[in-house]
Amino acid sequence: MPSPKLADKLAAQRATMSEELRLAYENSVAEMLAIGAGTTALGLGDRFPDIVLPNAEGDLIAIADLLALGPVVVTFFRGIWCPYCRLMLDALVVALPEIEAAGARLVGVTPETGGLALTTKRNHGAAFEVLCDVDCGLGLDCGVVFRTPASYRALLLKHGRDLAPRHGNESWFMPLPSVFVLDRSGIVRWRFFTTDFSEQAEPDDIIAALRALGR
């Protein structure tokens, strides 16, 4: 029997939300839409920034070095506290052999500091790079960073999810779920972006986008 689609797992997770959480989530998504979130992300044909960031193991990784080996899939996470991100991570771990068979490298990006990138890798058995986007610099460069709406921030705090110590800053900015498929010259050829953080890109779609890059 084929494993259920990521979308089904995300829907099942969404169904477990308390009334309070659901309201805050809906408000937050509505607020994101109202301020035009999603209109600022890198688009098809844009060049992905040529950046260097620390990885989970504490080394500096240059995106250019990864591109020299082939196409790159960059996926932004909110953090391991986020159940939707965890489902996405698990789905990507399963999809990794096919992504690599398509000649590509997978790179996760998290705004969480203090070793949480490594925790993320270990918890999920992820054999791909997880970069630590300290202070969300890359997220800003890619246009995927937004300030957490106040109501949602209050709810996260109430549930012990204070982002300040996790991010090492008090700014409460975080990336929205997004995936960029880059060809070997670093040009965005496919992307997924949503203001609804309970949605994620379907790994099958990422793999299809990689295959469409050709050769």
Binding site: P49, I51, D133, D141
Partner: peptide
């Protein structure tokens, strides 16, 4: 301070790529 911190982080990530 939050925005300038983020901007500096973005600039650092790019500059290292250049300066190396």
């Amino acid at each position: 301070p939050h925005l300038s911190g983020m901007l500096a982080a973005a600039a650092t990530a790019r500059r290292v790529a250049d300066e190396a």
